[in-house]
Amino acid sequence: MNTLANNIPINYYLILSGILFCIGVMGVLMRRNAIIILMCIELMLNAVNLLLAAFSVMHNDAGGQVMVFFIMAVAAAEVAVGLSILVLIYRNVKSVDINILNRLKW
């Protein structure tokens, strides 16, 4: 089996995935818009997914790809719940700025 994926060394995947993950982390940390934060979380998840798929091919083991499907399913559910929460928040406070959402505390 000599596909494109096999020809790219694993390091490239690692670096790409690391970059994507860091972008996601930085996005979560620095942005104030809750929707963007949600997207950044997706980005982190997908960075991990990419890595899992890459290692799965490298080791010729389907387990990694199965895991990816799991993560995708969970992420889809999470986004559904997260977005509906955000919709409700927006209806109440007319904003999705997380700095405004600081009333959920003692």
Partner: peptide, 17 residues
């Protein structure tokens, strides 16, 4: 300890990271 609970999501995420 409740002083830690600012309600600021950014702070929570930062602490988590």
């Amino acid at each position: 300890l409740k002083q830690l609970q600012t309600g600021n999501v950014g702070f929570y995420v930062f602490a988590m990271v």
